[in-house]
Structures are given as structure tokens and as C-alpha cells.
């Protein structure tokens, strides 16, 4: 897991774990334990409520998420900022497009 995502940074779109960081809106989606396409679906639901330029960080454990989250971002015009895979954990951060 990347160093900037710990248990305290966890949240989900339902928890409303959003804050105004220096980089603008940053929201975490916790999709751990969910099978694809659920992580991508959660990410898309969260993205719908956010303005362009916001950062969205998605945590997942399904191996397909490491491919599908970047593919979703590409199809939707979002930019992948980073994609980390460590053990079973996948953390994908995207900057939302317009």
C-alpha cells in the first residue's frame, strides 16, 4: 500500500470523507472486498458528485481493479495520477476531467 493511504485516510462516498486539500477536492472511495465492476461503479458514483479537477482515490482488493480503474478513467476523460499495487491492495488516484 502506498505510504499516503492509511487506515485513518479510509472512507467511502457514503461516509463523505471529502476535504479541501491543497490539491483541491480529495475524496476516498473504499471498495476493498468488492468484485469488479463494483469498485469502478463506486468510483463513478463518487465522481458524479465532484467538480472537474477533484482528486479521487480508490482503494480496492480485486486484482481486476488495477486494470479497470485506469481504463475507466481513460474512457471518461479522467487522468490517472498514480496507481499502486501492494500485496492484495490496489490504490488508484485520478484527477477528474471536465
Amino acid at each position: 500500500m502506498s505510504e499516503d493511504v492509511g487506515p485513518d485516510a479510509r472512507g467511502s462516498e457514503a461516509d463523505g470523507a471529502a476535504d479541501h486539500g491543497a490539491a483541491g477536492w480529495a475524496v476516498d472511495v473504499d471498495a476493498r472486498g468488492l468484485r469488479c465492476p463494483a469498485p469502478v461503479l463506486r468510483a463513478a458514483v463518487a465522481a458524479r458528485a465532484l467538480p472537474a479537477g477533484a482528486l479521487l482515490r480508490v482503494l480496492a482488493t480485486d486484482p481486476a481493479a488495477a486494470v479497470d480503474l485506469p481504463a475507466w478513467a481513460r474512457m471518461r476523460g479522467h487522468a490517472v495520477v498514480r496507481c499502486d499495487r501492494s500485496g492484495d491492495d490496489v490504490v488508484v488516484t485520478v484527477r477528474l476531467g471536465g
Partner: peptide, 21 residues
């Protein structure tokens, strides 16, 4: 992945970086 009973999706789709679900 869910159609094969395996957890891993097609390694071909993954290598191409296209949607696997």
C-alpha cells in the same frame, strides 16, 4: 474474471490496459 471462476481477469485484456469487466 467473474466468468472464468478465477479471480484474475484475462491477462490479454489486462496487458492491453483495456476494461476487463
Amino acid at each position: 474474471a467473474c466468468t472464468s471462476g478465477a479471480l484474475e481477469p484475462s491477462h490479454v485484456l489486462a496487458a492491453m490496459g483495456v476494461l476487463t469487466h
